[in-house]
Design a protein around this nucleic acid. Sequence first.
DNA 1: TTTT
DNA 2: TTTT
Lengths: 115, 115, 115, 115
Amino acid sequence: MNHIALIGRLTRDPELRYTPNGVAVSNFDLAVDRPVPNQQGERETDFIRIIAWNKLAENVANYVKKGRLVGVEGRLQIRSYETQDGQKRRVAEVVASQVQFLDRGRDDSAAAGNG
Amino acid sequence: MNHIALIGRLTRDPELRYTPNGVAVSNFDLAVDRPVPNQQGERETDFIRIIAWNKLAENVANYVKKGRLVGVEGRLQIRSYETQDGQKRRVAEVVASQVQFLDRGRDDSAAAGNG
Amino acid sequence: MNHIALIGRLTRDPELRYTPNGVAVSNFDLAVDRPVPNQQGERETDFIRIIAWNKLAENVANYVKKGRLVGVEGRLQIRSYETQDGQKRRVAEVVASQVQFLDRGRDDSAAAGNG
Amino acid sequence: MNHIALIGRLTRDPELRYTPNGVAVSNFDLAVDRPVPNQQGERETDFIRIIAWNKLAENVANYVKKGRLVGVEGRLQIRSYETQDGQKRRVAEVVASQVQFLDRGRDDSAAAGNG
DNA sequence: TTTT
DNA sequence: TTTT
């Protein structure tokens, strides 16, 4: 089991690319707020990287922009890679299975998913 | 582990009551949409009963109304009771731990929780 | 968004049936414990109905038995029906998307899902 | 909303420390398996860093060891820091709110949480 | 690098 | 109707 549910705002427009074999993939960052315990009204923000594949990647790129509020479901993935000078790094990202659009007029609550 | 995450709209204003010993409790129903598989554009709706306690009950009663979009986190509880003519019945409800307000101006994304 | 995550024990063996058009469906109940607040060591139990479809229904029926510990992911569904004497009733059940087997030797942590 | 649910095994014994003002904090890594799509029987593993605070930190340190299967609930946090040579780095970790012990005899399904 |  |  590896399931994460987030609600937050995009910090930038999603970036849509295609793999060499034509699979759509898009990335964006989500600003997710939370209250600071015992500090009334204060909030802190986590900036969480999201990755979407296939039709969901295209829907996100077409319908969501910087500043929009979305709900995201997916799984947390830790990817390892090496920098050019040979250091090992790890990047955490949420692989989205569902993205739900939450503000803006009658589009409210529209949703997109894979599979 | 018993955790549920929902996004939906209230079908009526929340009802606020107090137990004999003065504990606030409020109830509302959430309309939660989902796509019907293989039926493009079709949606079905689950109507899910939510119960909130204490300060969260009061916040919900004060700030959320029928039609508003909210995110709810909590646990699924199955309560048993007997009808007046002695039949056993069971009711399912989500005991909310967090409610997040998702539409309406700069209130966007305000949140309330217990504990 | 409608996602639930549960860990609990089966209260009986799963029941496997097939719809008239040959789709596998299986049902079981999960006993899900939780601590009673402020009552050290006390626990209460929710008995939650699970329904699985297709290959997941068959895997569950084949590999899980009464008493086994499992993790379940899915969505909460409220189904309405009428009794023979015309009363309206509602039943809550979790439509499983994943079931993970959690005890018993090297089977530990085996998982099965749909789609 | 920021909620994650995981089931996995500890890759090492948890490490228990105390902050200068005496707050318990413990760290461990969880190996979380998932099936590789379209590759029958193949599995990949994410290694996810967990952090627990207060009484939960102490319970985890006392009762859980390397290799044990646990369920973890919490939130995903992205922490920024600077390396000694002034590079900015980010680390992702799950701040646990509940840890449930899932294997080993009658301890099965014991749980510990904060708040 | 960050959103309202 | 309930599991350990």
